[in-house]
Amino acid sequence: MANMREIRERIASIQQILKITNAMYLMSSSKLKKARKALEATDPYFYKLQETVISILEHTPHTRQQYFDRREEIPEDKRKKGYIVITADKGLCGSYNHNILKHTEAELAKAPDIDNCYLFVMGQVGRMYFQKRNRNKENFVDAEFVYTTQNPTLYRARDIAELVLEKFEKGDLDEVYLIYTDMITSSQFECTTVQLLPFERRHFSVAPDGSLKKLPKASFSPSPEEVMSYLIPQFAKGVIYGAMVEAFCCEQQARMTAMDAATTSAKDMIKELSLLYNRARQAAITQEITEVVGGANSLEEN
């Protein structure tokens, strides 16, 4: 049986950790409230945006817009793929980071040539992970792409959207994907990949009954090309912002759950250890008494 001092020290150290996890729990729960509010405020915009763009594209005549350019002349293994990955800035949030990293790895494995993959990672954890993973290859993780995932703002989303659109226009990237964690219910998350660029028309023109509808063409002012070249950056920005808000909310939720679990198991451990401690103390006392009584007895006999 472990001795009393050892157990006492262990209990003290667990109590210290309990304080930390409990504080983090409280912090993340208050942050979660804020994130939830932001998510609820953004959700109508996020969904309406997708819905509207879908319906606009159904009415759009064929345009030779650069964002629709699929660049089919480039063979599959030469295509440069960009991935925007949203991870957390800190650990201690359960499997949140692992899931998104694993999901990204799976996406990367699908690509024919990893040398043509470029990552734009938001959040420290993901950056560290991917920088370590491919040390020998430069430009794998964009070094200048440093954005935090905390308290997402539209301003940051605009920056990111401009950056990837510019790279796409220049031909530095041929495809752009966005990988983030989607909140399905408050306790259920799912890692999702969304293709941002090139804009795929066929994603959108799906009629519910599977038939191809003849849709009236809407008029565009001043011209479809012009409207598209304005609308698509707007759409990209909106989608990135929505994803950021969604991911941040998931992160806080994951952290809260993880910290709650840690606090509970710390409490359980303390309970168990104090039982052990009491038992050890009792044993020590009993032993002492036996010794004293034994000593006294032997004295009497003499």
Partner: peptide, 12 residues
Amino acid sequence: GILPGHEPLVTC
């Protein structure tokens, strides 16, 4: 200006 019954239109 947009009044009821405007033709379908998309603009930025």
